[in-house]
Design a binder for these strands. Sequence first.
DNA 1: CGGTTCACG
DNA 2: GACGTACGTGAACCGA
Length: 998
Amino acid sequence: MPAPRPVQQGDHVFLVDGSSFIFRAYFQSMNQDARYNYRSDRLPTGAVRLFCNVLHKMVREGVMGNKPTHLAIIFDKSEESFRKEIYPDYKAHRPPPPAELVPQFPLMRDAVRAFGLKPVEQIRYEADDLIATYCRIACEAGADVTIVSADKDLMQLIRPCVVMFDPASGDQKAKGSRPERIIGEAEVMEKFGVPPAKVVDVQALAGDSTDNVPGVPGIGVKTAAQLITDYGDLETLLARAAEIKQEKRRQSLIDNAELARISRQLVKLVDDVQLEVPLDDLVAPGLDARGAIAFLKAMEFNTLTRRIAEDAGLDPAAIEPDETLRIPPGEAPGGAPAAVVAVAVATPEGGAVAVATMEAARPDAGPPPARRVEEVKAALTAVPVDVAAYETVGSLEQLERWIAGAFDAGLVAFDTETTSLDALQAELVGFSLALAPGRACYVPLGHRDKADLFGAGLLPGQVPAAEALARLKPLLEDPSVLKIGQNIKYDALVMGEQGIRIAPQDDTMLMSYVLDGGLGSHGMDELSERHLGHKPIAYSQVTGTGKARISFAEVPIDRATAYAAEDADVTLRLWQLFKARLVAEGMVPVYETLERPLVAVLARMEAAGIMIDRQILSRLSGDFAQGAARLEAEIHALAGETFNVGSPKQLGDILFGKMGIPGGRKTATGQWATGADVLEDLAAQGLELPRRIVDWRQITKLKSTYTDALPGYVNPRSGRVHTSFALAATTTGRLSSSEPNLQNIPVRTEEGRKIRTAFIAAPGCKLISADYSQIELRVLAHVAEIPQLRQAFEDGIDIHAMTASEMFGVPVEGMDPLVRRRAKAINFGIIYGISAFGLANQLGISREESGAYIKKYFERFPGIRDYMDATKADCRANGYVSTIFGRKCHFPAINSKNPSERSFVERQSINAPIQGSAADIIRRAMARMDAALAGAKLSARMLLQVHDELVFEAPQEEVEAAMPVIAAVMEAAPEPALKLRVPLRVDARSAGNWEEAH
DNA sequence: CGGTTCACG
DNA sequence: GACGTACGTGAACCGA
């Protein structure tokens, strides 16, 4: 450390706001390739790396030609600022820092020391107060000061001897949305409308929602600036408040004078802190190259290590890494549950995981997660949703202020309003932004005059859409600003149509799904009621329903603002809660690896769509129509009367009433049951009519659900069919597909398979279908640890034949197909939570016989009964079961008094970990697929997921290269989080259509 | 809008 | 010992 030297005229003091820098660096790091963000032992280091780069540059080159003579890196000591003593809610609703950032706080300080500097921090004071104090002392000594920060709260310090420098994306090649810049008096005037000395007065009136400074309700920066300019300062204004003409404003100022004074105290920086480290001690070092290299090597920052070594003429290999920065292996796990640690330690994406453990090990990581959740909950309703006043943005200037606010906050809740639920057909009508609870706006773009019959007339008071979107794009694409949405895949698709990406993003619907899957739906209205105790304005309330329903474009703008801004506000509040809960409940790895990455993946798949051959479908429709007509005539003849063949009620009456066929069964509602199983039974007795009904039903089903309906889903712009995948719809973690459902395209019958030939590859391309073989049985073999099953999968033996062989003692060679079929049914039954009744039904045998099979099965595979019993007990004790990757499936009815309901839930709880683990595996494969294909220089793209199958489209010439890449990603999907005890196998085929590829 | 049926995994 | 059943989906159609 260099010797102290008094600051004097001509010196240049650099004051770096370390705390705000950390957050910036973190969000920036989130946008780069994940492997740069972790050390080889999964310690998250991305923010530290960016911090070191800038620190190095500052020491070496200075800023804007000025090199520092004195340099202080200043941090917030803790959250217990003296401001909390004045106003307990100060910074109260700050979300907790991202989990991956937490272990980096102490590393930042280590970095500062390694560069030969002293991190400066003082209890009770924020970094800003220390900066203010150093600033005053330096100016009094006649030196110049550069404050390195982007925090607007520091702007009050600017004066002739003080400038601010915003490193923003400074040394990145990033686009020019936020160039690095010097902030002087002119820039402060521009932002606050007053000179720096009066900034605190403006902030006292306008408040600051990110820090929870209350201000005076109804007064924003603009009004505040006007008032301060008119009256000179805050005290004069408050003294003469009675003179103000606008009634509401006058009253608000009179009522809230004290609040304004408190606010001023909160924003006014203290510049007479008793400094523990005198300014004179902070002499800028010549770089301590050896110390820096030891640190950088320990962090594994190779590029910067090399650069510094070169500059200093040192051999980096000769310098030992600083091993004190290694976390001893025994220290990490802390008190985390063993299961979580096991998942965590190995997850590649899961720096997050390493973090959960790290947090426990670091005493200075902030309040414990559970307390944090309570704090967030308490703060959430500080500004009730009901009374929040939302802003309608009617000018570009206004929009720019909100966008700047989002950049400052580093996060924004975002929501689009459109004319359609189909994102790819929807027209954008407006969007809303929320920056803090109660602070939200709506930006109308395409609201039309309802009275204008020609529909062209845009209502006045809206921002020109093209220009608004041009302003919005840099925000939505900026890596340092987190975009928060409720079902943000929809908004991503809508914005994608405008050529705008949304990244990075978080989704409250998915957070809720991870936290509370099985405990209710994850729609926003319900989440708001459940967690915020607030019922938001319903969509139908603004658009009406049924015949009177209007397009959102016709909703009056004030109504639209109330609705849309509230949605963004609610989304933001939910995010704060869920973010804290994910940490507290140990669900960060599940969210980060199984949910968050899937948003972009599915958006791409949906946008890609799949090509269909309409000619094939129309020909099939014709064939089916003929077949159905012929069958219908025969059915009427056999019945002796015409009736609606599609009516189960009429059919039941004819079969079991008029014709008096015995052995009918009734459904829950007392109607005659006429399902295929019943009709098949009757057909087996030699009856003609039921056979024809079954055939008729099959044909009409294929016609109405597929061949007739699919062409109607072709998007006119792309000429392809775009399904919508739901990520948060099932109780097990599976996806679902709708409009159209492309996960139930026929395959089991020959007639049905013809429909698959209509799903085709684009010209010059092929479809590739890759599916997991027996994935659920393999998962079962893994979780229940069944040695015979494991061995069979290891050896690649026919699993159903093996089961039959074990149970009935017959050799696999030359096995009776009927015996194998029974074993297969039992295997599936096991996965479904077997019952004698169900198995008997499936096999058409007696319950006694099926019960004997099950007994036999459990004798041969006792591990499976143990697994089932353990799973049920687990569910009863916790109310949920977990997949092998830690996804929770809640079953609150597990302890139901109703025996039938209870056994139903027990079967669900047995099935869920198996089905859900398989779903997790394919999700992991999907999350990695695009990067793997791109890494192999392949342009193949994923189009569909059908639970255990992925469908791709690839240029003909790369099909052979793509298939092994796809299979490898799928087969290795559980790793490295888990190594299954059984191998996974994937079969991949290619062809011009889906039928042949499958 | 609930019930029934049937397409898929 | 009663109770209705295989697990998970979405779409079409009927009939109130």
